[in-house]
Nucleic acid binder design. Structure first.
Lengths: 219, 219
DNA sequence: GGGACGCTTCGGTGCGGGCCGAAGCGTCCC
DNA sequence: GGGACGCTTCGGCCCGCACCGAAGCGTCCC
């Protein structure tokens, strides 16, 4: 009965409270950084690092290194399904939580902040609009006229890299990060064009924002 | 995220090689004794006893005490489904093994030995026939004419209890055990009326047995 | 370049638990 | 009753591992 050893192995990955808490947090479909998960589970960063390595090697999680960050996410829907079935077995209270999590996940996919810039479908919309306006190239490099456009919105070049590509985890395409992306995000918040919803990182484009983006030619 | 603790708990039950081997053996749907499982997994009887207690308390197994034996079986189809999904995740070789197990289980359900007597559908058929012949009552007590009938088949009363009811795990009804049941089973084997199939406890009624049972009025 | 930050590696600690053998108890056979 | 058998409890051993803090490395900001 050798095939039960594999079962014991994957069960062992989920048998730890901390690792289970990681997976539960990741059930929303987003990618979390190692530190976020460590804080969430209440363990030291070093402990979380080791747990994540085991979960990734076990095939439950996939990771994505970006700068000094380590993003992790569930390896796919099959992992989410496995967790769902086990949680369903463990307790009858899994259903309402799952509903809340999925609705929160949808809001997050529509729009969220990624550290200091916009991500999600909203971030992709912004990027597409900027590319269409010629502010940035398809590779997210700021053009000459793009810099003028940015300065009209109060952007001041600093020593920080003007633009960077940030891989969007839910959309699987890069969006605008760097100084320009951070500045735009800050301006959008200051002017009330975007606002946070819920308790997390989810954001939504306000009616005033929709009109302003149309006037700017973003949408 | 309190509901993930329950998940970690049930995962912990399956995270051990020995306990996983127990569950894998029980996936055939039969009830196993503690000793059988201990031998199967290669651990001491004391170790198996503790594991079984944990699995029963965790709700994965149900137990049934019968005399000095402790029968355990999966708590239900939902447990089997959980194990199937976890095994499917763990490895791609789960499917053929599952098939083998289920076919072996079918053979076992059709007929098997229960220590020294017949069980499964074959055991139920025998019991029904004996009741119809008036050899035993519906409560499996041997009647006066039944004792004569048994002696014609070579049965000799001993100090051992003549008849006992043994709960059939696959059929959920009692069948004939005790000295009479053991004697009949031995006679059937000696005369080639039943024979073993496969490597386990599965047995089948041979053609000669079918004819003999008809002549005796059992079927 | 300097400083902040996120992550990883490495010792070291402590607890949990899997395992066994021995002893004891209840059941069954003769 | 005597003996065999199955199971359980108990004590003890030991391995695994979850955890932390300190140190080091790479990245990012200014």
């Amino acid at each position: 009965m050798g095939f039960m050893e594999g079962l014991a192995q994957v069960a062992g990955l989920l048998a730890d409270r901390t690792r289970a808490a990681f997976c539960g947090a990741l059930l929303d479909g987003r990618a979390w950084t190692a530190r976020e998960l460590a804080v969430h589970a209440g363990v030291a960063a070093s402990t979380a690092s080791e747990h994540l390595t085991r979960l990734v090697e076990g095939g439950l999680l996939v990771e994505h290194r970006q700068g000094r960050h380590r993003y992790v996410a569930l390896a796919g829907p099959h992992v989410a399904e496995l967790l769902e079935s086990m949680a369903a077995f463990a307790g009858p209270d899994a259903r309402p939580r799952s509903l809340r999590a999925s609705s929160a996940s949808e809001a997050m996919a529509r729009g969220r902040t990624c550290y200091d810039h916009l991500a999600g479908q909203l971030g992709i919309t912004l990027k597409s609009g900027l590319v269409g306006l010629g502010v940035v190239t398809a590779e997210l490099a700021v053009t000459e006229p793009g810099m003028v456009w940015l300065k009209e919105l109060g952007f001041e070049p600093s020593q920080r890299q003007v633009s960077r590509a940030c891989l969007d985890w839910t959309e699987r395409v890069p969006h605008l990060a760097g100084a320009a992306g951070a500045h735009l995000c800050r301006v959008f918040f200051e002017r009330g064009w975007v606002r946070r919803i819920g308790s997390g990182r989810a954001v939504v484009l306000a009616p005033a924002g929709e009109q302003a983006w149309r006037e700017l030619g973003i949408v």
